[in-house]
Structures are given as C-alpha cells and as structure tokens.
C-alpha cells in the first residue's frame, strides 16, 4: 500500500452490513466520522471519542470494537457491521432488539447501538452466559438512562430465546 499523504483524501473501501461501500477520507479521519458523515450510517453514535463509553461500538472483522479508536484508513478492506445491519429484514426486529423493546432496555437510545452490537456478537460466541459474565461484558459500555437493570434483563431474555430457537436471529 502506498503512503497516504496527510493533506489529501483517499478512497477507503470496505464491506458494510454485507454491501461494498467506498468514500474518501484523510488519513486522520476517525472511523466514526467516516461511517456517519461520509457513508451516512448515523446509527452508530459518538459518546466520548476516547474509547471509554462504548456508544460507537461496531463489529470489525467479526469482533466488537470501538469505532472511535479506529482510523477509517485502518478499516480499508475490512468487514464491518453496524446497528443498521442487525434487523433480519425491514420491519422486523432481531430477537435481541425485540428483547430490548420488551424490557424497556433503552430510554434515550443514544448508547443503544453500541450495546446491541456488543451483545449481538457476545451472544453468538457465548449462547449461555452466566449473569456475572454478561455483566462484566456489558461493563464495557456506559448507559446514563436505564441503570442497566433492564438491559441485563433483556440480554438474559434474548440469550434464552436464542437458545430455545437457534434458527432465529
């Protein structure tokens, strides 16, 4: 790969929610800004820009990661999933999203995209988590509205339903 010059914009290409996308970015552009303002995928939110709050969590090459701690140019060639890619089809929510709605696991909804991306990934690798393990995992996120109680309930409920009907998404 050639050296990308600081002052110019360069084409960055990756797969976003199953589709090939591309846009222009300076080397310094954060992946959050690239997703939101260059690609229009505004479902991923920015809460702190220093990697603590977790609101910007997306899935990069199959694992949850902070998009504010990633440069757009680093993501060139990657496979990225965001909250816009979670629902199985338009008008239908995933099992996890449904559980969030049922348990009132969101209020303002600003941090929710990051938490959903984390949990979606986690429940695929850990279908039967203990409450403590799940809590520790959720500890990578800050929510200021809910007090976490309904989020824990929704996640445990979603895990149970996914175990009972593994073909659901």
């Amino acid at each position: 790969m050639p050296r990308l010059s600081a002052a110019e914009r360069h084409t960055v290409r990756f797969t976003l929610n199953g589709r090939a996308v591309e846009a222009q970015a300076e080397p310094r552009m954060l992946l959050t800004d690239f997703l939101r303002h260059e690609l229009g995928a505004t479902g991923t939110h920015v809460g702190c820009e220093h990697g603590v709050c977790g609101a910007c969590t997306v899935e990069i090459d199959g694992v949850p990661a902070r998009s504010c701690l990633t440069l757009a140019v680093q993501a060139d060639g990657a496979t990225i999933r965001t909250v816009e890619g979670l629902a199985p089809e338009p008008g239908r929510l995933s099992v996890l999203q449904e559980a969030f709605r049922r348990h009132h696991a969101l209020q303002c909804g600003f941090c929710t995209a990051g938490i959903l991306m984390s949990l979606d990934s986690y429940l695929r690798s850990q279908p039967d988590p203990s409450e403590q393990d799940l809590r520790e995992f959720l500890g990578g996120h800050i929510c200021r509205c809910t007090g976490y109680v309904p989020i824990m309930a929704a996640a445990m409920d979603a895990a149970k339903r996914l175990r009972e009907s593994p073909s659901d998404v």
Binding site: T42, L86, H104, L106, G109, F110
Partner: peptide, 21 residues
C-alpha cells in the same frame, strides 16, 4: 400498562434522529 414504546423501533435499528444524525 407497560405498553411497548413507539420510540423504540427506530432507536433499535439505527434510525434515530439525533441532532448530529
């Protein structure tokens, strides 16, 4: 009653309309 919130479907699918969105 604890009815489901009308706000949630959009917020859960990344279709919220916050100021920077």
């Amino acid at each position: 009653q604890s009815v489901e919130r009308v706000e949630d479907a959009a917020l859960l699918t990344g279709r919220g309309r916050f100021i920077d969105d």
